[in-house]
Amino acid sequence: MTHVLTRLIDRLTGHTRVTVMETERLLVLERGRIATILSAGEHRLKRKDTVTERHDLNRLRFTTPYEAALFRERPDLAEAHLTEVRAGEDEVLIVRRDGRLHGVVLAGDREVLWTDAGPWAVERLTLTDTLAVERKLGKALVRAGLGHVLTIWDVAEGHVGLLTVDGVLKGRLEPGTHAFWHIGRGATVRMIDLRMRTHEVTGQEILTKDRVTIRVNLTAVYRVTDPERAVAAVKDYTEALHRALQLAFRRTLGALTLDTILAEKGAVNADAAEAVRAEMARIGIEVGEIALRDVILPGEMREILNRVVTAEKEAEANVIRRREETNATRALLNTAKVMAENPVMLRLKELEALEAIAGKVERLTVHNGTEGLMTDLVKLRE
């Protein structure tokens, strides 16, 4: 009966009743102006010229088109129900709810939270010129699903990272994972490989002193010793090494004849390598072994050289053959002299010949004894 009577009175007086749950708040505007923010419970409102806006505390943030008007016209209501978090231009705010990470407010931004959705705690971090994030905090932000506020770079083993902020080199990053605040300013990392590497120059055409066009293949072993200087001194240190190898060997080989290049390839390597090492050391690159790996001749030049080599080898073979024939003749002459002076030696030679023949036939018949064997009749039967 009381409930019915209350409703009747409200209707007669132009009021209505609304219920606000524990997890809700009700923003009330009367005649277009912010009147109040209602907490949990039953409330009596004027029906005419009243607008309400219901908010869910589980959404945590206070989001409404009336936000600016609320802070301007009713700062008392804002202070009673809302927590405003505003970051300066050189700081980042870590917002925690009941001890757990809730969000991050980046430099120059703000966030308005329902105070009753807390308790809230705010940690202020001053931005460094590198925008670096402490490693433990970075991992916690990623686990909390807040990785979008970070720029993460992984530096592999054997590499070093050069950190640049807004185009200015800030320092060197060792192997590992590094995080930086993503606040509009660009934090970029350039990876530099510090390991020994091989660079090859293939098909380089060079005109020798005797006007023969050759193509050479070069190889060089190098590593970066001063990453900052290598990046600052040239646009691309690998391209700089490539160009240094080309120019050094072009100058060295162009001053030599083809025969000298083919005969003294090791000396050519040493002369050109010293020039390359000196030039690259100035930009922080250490160059190790440099080798003139291949010298490729034009087709007609290869045929000419092949004929020359063939003729040289044939001449060498003829000399060796004549030398051996002379030695053999001299040995026969010496043997003949020994046999002429020693009949017993001649007899032994006869027996050796007989033994050789006997080993190749089935039956051997000798007439008139063994004396005069080589001058008398020897009959062979198969």
Rank of each mutant, 00 (worst) to 15 (best):
F249W: 10
G108P: 05
H43I: 04
V165C: 04
R223N: 05
G99D: 11
V295P: 01
E111P: 00
E303P: 00
R250Q: 12
L113C: 01
L163H: 09
R185E: 09
T19K: 03
N334S: 13
L247E: 15
R25T: 01
L364H: 07
V295R: 01
I34Y: 06
A244G: 04
V189W: 11
A278W: 08
H15T: 01
T208F: 12
L5W: 11
G359I: 01
R172V: 10
M191S: 14
A140P: 02
T128L: 13
K235W: 04
R61I: 00
T50G: 05
A78W: 05
L373E: 07
A263S: 12
G266T: 11
A328H: 09
K337R: 15
R197T: 11
V4N: 05
N269D: 13
V234R: 07
A40R: 03
E362W: 00
V95C: 04
H15V: 00
E303R: 08
P175C: 05
R7D: 10
G299E: 12
T177D: 02
T370K: 04
K337G: 09
R33D: 04
G32W: 10
H242Y: 14
E286L: 05
A80V: 03
R322F: 07
V344S: 13
M301Y: 01
L131H: 14
E312F: 02
A267Y: 07
V142Q: 14
T188Y: 10
E300S: 12
G167P: 00
A275Y: 05
L101Q: 10
A263F: 05
L346R: 15
P65I: 11
D49T: 05
R96K: 14
A291P: 02
L137Q: 07
G372Q: 08
K235E: 15
L364Y: 08
D10Q: 09
D294G: 04
E42T: 14
E303Y: 00
V268A: 14
R97Q: 12
G167N: 05
V95Q: 04
H3L: 03
I283C: 02
K48D: 12
D259P: 02
A69D: 13
V361Q: 02
D236C: 10
T310Q: 11
R215S: 14
V168A: 15
V104W: 04
H43C: 03
R124T: 15
D210V: 07
T370Y: 14
N306S: 15
M301P: 00
V95W: 08
D49Y: 12
N342D: 15
R330W: 10
R74V: 03
V234A: 10
D294A: 08
R229K: 14
A156H: 08
L29H: 07
H55V: 00
R250D: 11
R61A: 09
V361Y: 03
H55W: 03
R282N: 12
L82K: 06
I283D: 06
R54H: 01
L8M: 10
L354Y: 08
G299I: 09
T219L: 04
E89D: 15
E300F: 06
V308A: 10
L377R: 11
H159F: 11
T375Y: 03
L101S: 06
T370N: 02
V201F: 07
L60A: 09
D98M: 10
E274V: 09
A156Q: 12
A80F: 06
R72G: 06
V295L: 03
T365M: 11
P65H: 13
T329H: 10
L131Y: 12
V155A: 06
W153I: 07
